[in-house]
Amino acid sequence: MPINETLSQYSDYSYTTAAAIYVIALMFALIEQGFGAKGRLAAERSMQRSRELVGAGGPPVTTMTPAEPPREIGRPERIGRMGAALLVLAALLHLSAIVLRGLAVHRAPWGNLYEYGMATTFIAVVTWLVIMRKFPVRHLSGFLLLPVVILMFVNGTMLYTTAAPVQPALQSYWLVIHVSAAIIGSGVFLVPGVASVLYLFRAAHDDDPAKFAKFGSKLPAADVLDRIAYRTTIFAFPIFTFGVLCGAVWAEAAWGRFWGWDPKETVAFVAWVVYAAYLHSRATAGWRGKRAAIINIVGFSATIFNMFFVNLVTSGLHSYAGG
């Protein structure tokens, strides 16, 4: 079937608009984080929450007493809310960019590097929206949007690929399964990466309140950031594992071996091992906390490296058409 140029054009418009609105939402979130009382209040509230949530070994706390601090809605908070609304709007546009691409090319819209980047950043944003509902972290949206916007920019300029069908090696239902698992895994992994960076700031501030005095005090409790990182990681890790496994099954059918240390396979393996190390570190005395956070950030770097640079720097079998 021929490519539908019009839909592809609309997909591009949607993508660009989504990115632009993310930038605005990013700025709004930074305003709330920088000037709002919300940041501080949320930090205090989350401190309290974390005290309630500690499991084994925690101090004896009886049942929940969710003491909501008095709501204090200032201008920065209102801007923060608007930012969140814009975030949702941009995410919808982002989704429509993906869907339109798929309709334009009559296949799963993740057949080249550009489409892959588009879907991965979308997953990262959706994960963040879910986290925002469960934890008081709206004012931190800017820190997630920063990498998202940078990735979308690089993706939309350097890696842009016109809508086209895929080559024979990619014509397989494994494209849908393997690549979507990789996308979900990598996309979700962006969130713990950001949470772990913030954790390091908060932990440094907790150790020495003079450090990052302004910034650190407005972050949620280290415990909450750690929890966000852990929960998102254990969600993404099995999906990522599944993605690598499906990749091996597909490679067995397409390339003649299930594992051949192709650069993309190798970096996926490295990222996988690093996240396994992260999970281990949380069960190892002396490695919880800061070291675990650093390991998670290393995993995050490996994921980003794998998403873009491997395809650009090295020439493996994985280099998608036009990638």
Binding site: W261, P263, K264, T266, V267, F269, V270, V273, V274, A276, A277, H280, S281, T284, W287, A302, V310, T314
Partner: peptide, 15 residues
């Protein structure tokens, strides 16, 4: 844990 790290590090040059 250390071995896992070394494994990740050692695999990297291959890419």
């Amino acid at each position: 844990l250390v071995l896992l790290f070394l494994l990740a590090l050692a695999a990297m040059p291959g890419a």
